[in-house]
Design a protein around this nucleic acid. Structure first.
Length: 209
DNA sequence: CTCCCGATAT
DNA sequence: ATATCAGGAG
């Protein structure tokens, strides 16, 4: 079993104040941006939301959106028909059940259309200041390579990481892991030689490059 | 399990 | 040419 305490310490030293690369200023904006980010780079999401957030400011705005127009507005993020439907349906529900506000519990968030566990944890952690571990593709990969939790089931990884890391720093560690996965422990050609976790890592395929 | 979707790195 | 990119629904 990998040394979670040591890994957390090194990770936070490398990323002292890690933040999401997604641009947002409200829980609703983060919710929309996170849905758009599925299988898409954060840079592209930010390009799209820069325009989108000027036009759609409240859940009511999305709930009333013209589907065809909205699909075109988010098209570059891919999966645009699904995402458009998810966001609009989700916001209709926000209006009907939550007075247009974004709820702040895991149960309520995952009950919304288009909102899975990863999206819910991301919103809770970065928009509501709660301590959560959102397991996306980066966290999944980094956790498995390090040997922290070996599973391809995001929920299993989440529970394992929550158990091993200090509760009060979960969100920071979460964001640091995401940055580490994006910049260093990349899916293709990870930069093992510049990795601050090299000595803690149990991955057998560490390239010598 | 498949499908949704386009762009980019390798 | 193929894997992958801040996933989730049916």
């Amino acid at each position: 079993m990998a040394n979670a305490k040591k890994i957390a310490e090194l990770l936070l030293k490398r990323y002292p104040s890690p933040k999401l690369a997604l641009n947002f200023s409200t829980p609703l904006e983060l919710l929309v941006a996170t849905i758009l980010s599925a299988q898409c780079t954060d840079a592209r999401v930010n390009e799209v939301t820069r325009q989108l957030f000027k036009k759609y400011r409240k859940a009511e705005d999305y709930a009333r959106a013209d589907m065809k127009r909205f699909e075109e507005e988010i098209r570059p993020t891919g999966f645009y028909k699904n995402k458009a439907k998810m966001i609009v349906e989700c916001c209709k529900r926000l209006v009907e059940d939550y007075g247009g506000d974004v709820p702040d519990t895991l149960e309520e968030l995952t009950g919304l259309p288009g909102v899975g566990r990863k999206t819910a944890n991301m919103v809770l952690g970065s928009a509501f200041g709660k301590q959560t571990m959102a397991v996306d593709t980066h966290v999944l990969r980094v956790s498995n390579r390090l040997g922290l939790v070996r599973s391809d089931d995001p929920e299993v990884v989440e529970e394992g990481l929550v158990r091993q890391f200090p509760k009060g720093r979960l969100t920071k560690i979460n964001l640091a892991m995401i940055l580490h996965g994006r910049e260093t422990c990349t899916a293709r050609r990870p930069k093992c030689m510049e990795c601050v976790l090299y000595k803690e890592c149990e991955w057998p395929d560490k390239t010598g490059r």
